[in-house]
Amino acid sequence: MSTATGTTGIGVSDVLARCREENRAALVGYLPVGFPTVEGSIAAMVAMVEAGVDIVEVGIPYSDPLMDGPVIAYAADQALKHGVRVGDVFTATRAVRDAGAPPLVMSYWNLILRHGPTAFATDLAAAGGAGIITPDLIPDEAGEWIAASDASGLDRVFLVAPSSTDERIASVTERCRGFVYAVSHMGVTGARTSMGDAASVIVSRTKAATDLPVCVGLGVSTGAQAAEVAAYADGVIVGSALVRCLTEAADLESGITVLRALVAELAEGVRSGR
């Protein structure tokens, strides 16, 4: 297992190794840059780190977020209407890095393609970024990104899903660095009432193929669910539930207060699952 550290600071692999030593899962929290404003989203990301998130997923709003459910799609749409730019992601990764957590960018591929994958990797590494999660880029299409991430020392997180064959899991994990993102169920982002068995099955199938840490995303919204997933996964990824703290709040300040409380609950969850 190799570790990419971007420029300076602790890498994703280091964080996951430390969590493993502490016999717990890592908590990975997602927020999109630019909602409700660029400054507001960065304040919320920093608050997440202070409240116990181990790794921050910094989302870039995209006009056609076909992997996202209504909560994240709404936040992305609002952020775009307020004029968020792709370049704002670098301000966010710098702030998250300065707050002490490794920032992983979550982006649909066309935004990176348009920026130029090599240029994006260089700019991200310079802004303290640890790597990129690419929900609509499979390794088969990722030749240029694999080269660019190697050159810049960035992690690259591809996804596996319950529908993935063993052959696909093997070929996807082979080209991941940092961790493998296991999609807990077939569907788009958004809170679920129950995590079901599919998540633990895809984690054990993935672990059979790789020594990389496996983090589970899609559907987790409570401390109890985080604890449930933490029992078998190396990391728990939470997105929509955190975004909703901000979309449903009357103002940023009260949103961040609710956000801190939820992060604390989730952080407790990932520590009580085993």
Partner: peptide, 24 residues
């Protein structure tokens, strides 16, 4: 994205830019 001579490509164009979940 890559010099390609893969199925599903028309010259440089085409490909499969979708979530892994849909690949099967």
């Amino acid at each position: 994205p890559e010099p390609v001579a893969r199925p599903g490509r028309f010259g440089d164009f085409g490909g499969r830019y979708v979530p892994e979940a849909l690949i099967p």
